[in-house]
Every structure is written in C-alpha cells, then in structure tokens.
C-alpha cells in the first residue's frame, strides 16, 4: 500500500512546541482519520502507511512518540519496533494490536514499547497514553 505522508497540526504557529507523533498503519483510512483527530487534539502528527514509509519519516525528523500497528503487510510491527528503538532509543512507541494478539503486544513491551492498545481503540485512551508517553520522554 502506498500513499503520501500526511503532516498535520492544528496550530502551525505553535508547531515546534507540539508533541511530535509518528503514526504507522497500513490501513490508510484509519491512519488518516486518526491523524486528523490527533492533530485536532494538539499533536503534530505524521501519518505513514507502511513500515518502510515510517522508517523514512523517522530518518527525516525526530518524533516524541510513534504509534505503530502490529500487523502490516510489508513489515511486522515488532520488527518495526526493533528498528525504531535502534534508530531513536528515546522515542516512545505505542503498539496498536488487533484483538487477541496480547502475546505479541507483551513481547513488544519486553522489547521496549511504551504501551499497547487493542484496536479499534477509544481515541481518548490513545490521547491519554500519548500524553503520558510524551511526559515520560521529556523527563528522560
């Protein structure tokens, strides 16, 4: 699946101070709408639609938090997590899991993921987790 990378933030003037979120999900519709809704909640969001696009985006700039889908066509979420952790160890990674893949999610936590959420998730929950991850990242 290919698609252009979407950069989005509600308040361009405060752009630099907003937490930077990298979204990686090959379900374009879901990633897009999530990108819009998170931007509206004061995040500077970059949505990518495959593992490789995610890596490219991370090469260009740093992010505070990455939200990664566990199941993607070109790359396994766990693989991507390992790569991300190698590239930017300080970046918090939140996993989005399909229902019932708790084991994989736990494996992710062991590999350094910040947390995981079962998909489809409540937006408020995701926002809370991202904020928590940012706070944690900044403290480091």
């Amino acid at each position: 699946m290919t698609g252009k990378i979407i950069h989005m933030s509600e308040q361009p003037e405060k752009r630099e101070s907003l937490p930077k979120v990298l979204l990686v999900d090959d379900e374009v519709g879901y990633a897009t709408i999530l990108c819009k809704r998170l931007s509206k909640r004061n995040f500077q969001v970059t949505a990518t639609f495959s593992g490789s696009e995610g890596i490219q985006a991370l090469r260009k700039e740093d992010f505070d938090v990455a939200v990664v889908d566990l199941k993607m066509e070109d790359m396994d979420g766990i693989e991507l997590l390992k790569i991300f952790k190698k590239m930017v160890p300080s970046m918090a990674v939140i996993m989005l899991t399909g229902h019932g893949s708790d084991r994989a999610a736990k494996e992710g936590i062991e590999l350094g993921a910040f947390d995981y959420l079962s998909k489809p998730c409540e937006l408020d929950e995701l926002v809370a987790k991202i904020k928590l991850a940012c706070g944690e990242g900044r403290r480091d």
């Binding site: 519709g29 879901y30 709408i33 489809p120």
Partner: peptide, 11 residues
C-alpha cells in the same frame, strides 16, 4: 471487520 468498523467510528 474490526478495521472498517474502527474507521467508521473514528470518522
């Protein structure tokens, strides 16, 4: 089904 439903809810 999970994914389309998630998109619908988010939209």
């Amino acid at each position: 089904i999970n994914n389309p439903v998630a998109i619908m809810v988010e939209e």
